[in-house]
Nucleic acid binder design. Structure first.
Length: 200
DNA sequence: CATTTGATGTTCT
DNA sequence: GAACATCAAATGC
């Protein structure tokens, strides 16, 4: 098990990272409590200045987007539709506002706590960016949090994903982005059943 | 089944 | 005041 360090996120290849993060583990520990974690099954890349779907299109700097201009390896969390907290990982170097939205996880650790947080039976696969943040306890207060501080982090547990199982599709809910809406910058693990827990 | 709608708050015009 | 990187429940076939 290796915690993914800032060096990983600072590299200048956000599309490669969006694909590489499939199969990595997203983990949280809130208030020193139990760890909750899941395997990342779905990501989307947002390439800042040149990407009409990105909040930071044209290097647009606001109170909200400012986080994306910071150096990679931190969280970008914002509220969507007034209800859902969406979790992104800031990538690339300072002043290059790239980010990767996490859209789905396969719950692995801290299942009971996740179930309490979502107030219903925990599904085998948490698909949807607003649902996994609720289960992991990620909120806008975690915006700009370092991914090396022990609250939110990513792990490589040497889970191997067959590259053929990672599908590439256009991103979801970005119709407003014109031609950029059809860019194949969403990465999804096709056969989630291959992760299914097996009873000992 | 497919499609619509209501909930809800922050940002930006 | 409109738009928004959504979701679940309700409605219409």
């Amino acid at each position: 098990m290796t915690i993914i360090s800032r060096d990983y996120f600072i590299r200048n290849d956000t599309l490669w990272m969006a694909r590489d993060l499939i199969g990595k583990y997203l983990c949280t520990r809130l208030n020193g409590n139990t760890v909750t974690a899941g395997i990342i099954t779905e990501t989307e890349a947002y390439l800042g200045s040149v990407d009409r779907a990105s909040h930071a299109y044209g290097n647009r700097r606001t109170a909200r987007t400012n986080t994306m201009f910071m150096a990679g390896g931190i969280a970008y969390v914002y509220l969507c539709y007034g209800i859902h907290h969406l979790f992104n990982i800031v990538t690339n170097t300072e002043n290059i506002p790239h980010a990767i939205l996490i859209r789905g996880i396969f719950p692995v650790d801290g299942l009971e706590i996740m179930e309490q947080r979502i107030q219903k039976k925990l599904p085998l696969h948490l698909n949807g960016p607003g649902k996994l943040t609720l289960a992991l306890g990620i909120k806008t207060l975690h915006d700009a949090t370092s991914l090396e501080g022990g609250t939110i982090w990513l792990e490589d547990r040497s889970l191997l994903i067959d590259p053929k199982l990672v599908k590439t599709t256009p991103r979801i809910g970005v119709d407003y982005a014109g031609e950029d809406a059809s860019l194949p910058w969403r990465f999804v693990l096709d056969n989630v059943d291959c992760l299914k827990r097996v009873d000992p």
